[in-house]
């Protein structure tokens, strides 16, 4: 029969394995959330910087009312397939140059300066165009963000790894619990065998002593009983 404490140990081993697996999965979720946040921040920063570069480039065109040059600059953005739309607005807010990739909607007719933000599957930034402390207009930039499917595929590999690790932990925990229980059972059996052996030896010694002393001892024993 398995002692109670062995059963408890077996149970606690399983529990530890389960807790470790759950902790691992939670850690995985935290990692995904952290990566997602970091990715979004990094992407927003990138778009902000890109918008600032465009802003610095079109500043002279705005300063010298050269709409054609601003438009030419925006057309050059077609070399970047990630840019879906862009526009330049003058100091009165009027759109003076625009670019949009095929099948993409045009930039809005007016746009207020705004820090980079996510809009559906795009990231949008509206940056002021300024020089020598004077604002000459604004630049609107819309670029593609990662689609949900691509994001899922990015995290799928990590998710599978975490699940596998959790599974291995669970199996290891269960196996270790089983092994411990077996070990305790073996110890118990050995102890019982040793006790049996000791009892047999004692009986043998008693029998030998009786054969030397004759029948007094059994009589004494009976008298004593």
């Amino acid at each position: 029969m398995t002692p109670l404490w062995t059963t408890a140990l077996l149970g606690s081993g399983r529990a530890i394995a389960m807790i470790a697996a759950i902790a691992l999965m939670l850690l995985g979720l935290v990692m995904v959330a952290f990566n997602e946040r970091t990715y979004n921040d990094q992407k927003a920063r990138e778009i902000g910087v890109q918008a600032q570069i465009i802003s610095a480039s079109v500043a002279p065109a705005l300063m010298f009312s050269d709409n054609g040059s601003a438009a030419q600059y925006l057309q050059a953005l077609s070399a970047n397939p990630g840019v879906s739309a862009a526009a330049v607005y003058d100091s009165r807010g009027a759109r003076i140059a625009t670019y949009n990739r095929r099948d993409e909607p045009q930039p809005p007719a007016t746009a207020a300066v705004h820090a980079p933000y996510f809009e559906n599957s795009s990231i949008v930034a509206v940056t002021p165009v300024y020089r020598d402390g004077q604002v000459f207009g604004a630049v609107y930039l819309r670029t593609d963000a990662e689609t949900p499917l691509r994001r899922f595929s990015r995290y799928a590999g990590v998710g599978v790894l975490i699940l596998l690790a959790a599974l291995v932990l669970t199996v290891l925990g269960l196996a270790q619990g089983g092994a411990l229980a077996g070990q305790f059972r073996t110890r118990g059996t050995r102890a019982a065998i040793a006790a049996g052996n000791r009892a047999t030896q004692t009986r043998r010694r008693s029998a030998a002593a009786e054969s030397k002393d004759g029948s007094h001892r059994p009589i004494d024993r009976r008298c004593g009983a």
Binding site: S57, A59, P60, A61, F64, D66, S69
Partner: peptide, 8 residues
């Protein structure tokens, strides 16, 4: 002269 001005 800044090349950006030259370009205009």
């Amino acid at each position: 002269i800044d090349p950006r001005l030259l370009s205009l």
